[in-house]
Design a protein around this nucleic acid. Sequence first.
DNA 1: CCAATAGTGTCTCTAAGACAGTATGTT
DNA 2: AACATACTGTCTTAGAGACACTATTGG
Lengths: 227, 227
Amino acid sequence: MKRKTVPKELLTQLAVDVVIFTVIDERMQVLLIKRQWQPYESFWSLPGGFMRQNESTIQAAQRILHEKAGLTKDVYIEQLYTFDASGRDPRGNIPTVTYMTLIPQEQLTFSTSKKSQEPQFMALSKMPNLAFDHSTIIRYALHRLRSKLEYTNIIYSLLPKMFTLTDLQHAYETVLEKKLDKRNFRKKYLSLGLIRSTGKTQRGGQRRPALLYAFTARKPAELKKFL
Amino acid sequence: MKRKTVPKELLTQLAVDVVIFTVIDERMQVLLIKRQWQPYESFWSLPGGFMRQNESTIQAAQRILHEKAGLTKDVYIEQLYTFDASGRDPRGNIPTVTYMTLIPQEQLTFSTSKKSQEPQFMALSKMPNLAFDHSTIIRYALHRLRSKLEYTNIIYSLLPKMFTLTDLQHAYETVLEKKLDKRNFRKKYLSLGLIRSTGKTQRGGQRRPALLYAFTARKPAELKKFL
DNA sequence: CCAATAGTGTCTCTAAGACAGTATGTT
DNA sequence: AACATACTGTCTTAGAGACACTATTGG
């Protein structure tokens, strides 16, 4: 049931950009690539591309995740917003549908192999000037992430399968940029029933070993409220 | 700096659909139009259209608001989400960027004049089968609206300039589908500083006249939390 | 004076947040 | 034994929610 002819007036390109967050060394990091073509040649930017026929925007996002960041495993992905303020792209009015993904540090297998585009995690605190409105997009993503931490369990997507309560607290502290009280945090978090003790303890430490926990479900879920 | 040639592979249509909410007779209503063309001919659907070159999606939404619903005044408008699940449009994969607008009943001047497309408010409780995934979109919009009532002041966009506390409470109760306690509601709402007494009282009533209030600012603002 | 809605205050209970010392491993 | 981190409980306070009577106007 394809339309025979669509007026040129109604055709557009549709961009898809992906904000890939992870936590390294207790600092929030975003994956950036160095553009080697116009426009904004040699600027750092979010990995992105254009939606193709016969794929959806989320499929495009996953393709970009794979092509430009070498990431394939199932990662948390969520649509953010469609940016199309006039002037965002010098080639004309090209809306971009943006996605956010969260990756635990341990899953960063791709290293710096793909030299061609130099994909690289950079700390939020020392971000250069980015191409297009990508700084705005990252700011938006961070805001969304912080909000969602407060009423969902998506923190699981930044942690390995097993982790200590201290690790969990550090993850919250890093994203929220806010210190939390250890006793209050544990009291509250354990009361939520989201995690279970695995019985195992952290090996290799040279201090008192901490108990390792795991999320009861590694799927997005909404909570009443917590932090 | 237009690109000379864009591969056909990367061109798409981009739809824009608008969910227009209002409250009539203490019931949530959505503006629908009856499609008089394929696909989904004769189905009720959200007012929508395609984004044109040289307009942004929000401009397209405002154009649709005007063309199909006869609404021009400044109304609250907010982007919701971009839907593009495969199969949502039988003509192919056409993403739609959706917007939500909120209109106070008093501002509904357009009546049922535009017979051509029969735009009509219908209560959420008695919605027919809609074209495309428009039912999903409305469900999403309602969920968003309910969430935002709890941490923003956007309820102002469903009320006239002056209103009684009872009106305000009814607006919340209608959208949230939940009865609220009169004393607790007033205590809390008045403590927020969002509204001010106008000194005037409701005229024309044949009971004890209620004080009329107005929002101190009819602009979207985020609150800590309230309901 | 009757009808009808407007308006008002207290108590209980839960949860958030402040706060410091003991326990248990490693070396 | 010394060290480093894991782990734990109480008190205070603020806010949410339950609850019922008085006030004011029009007819």
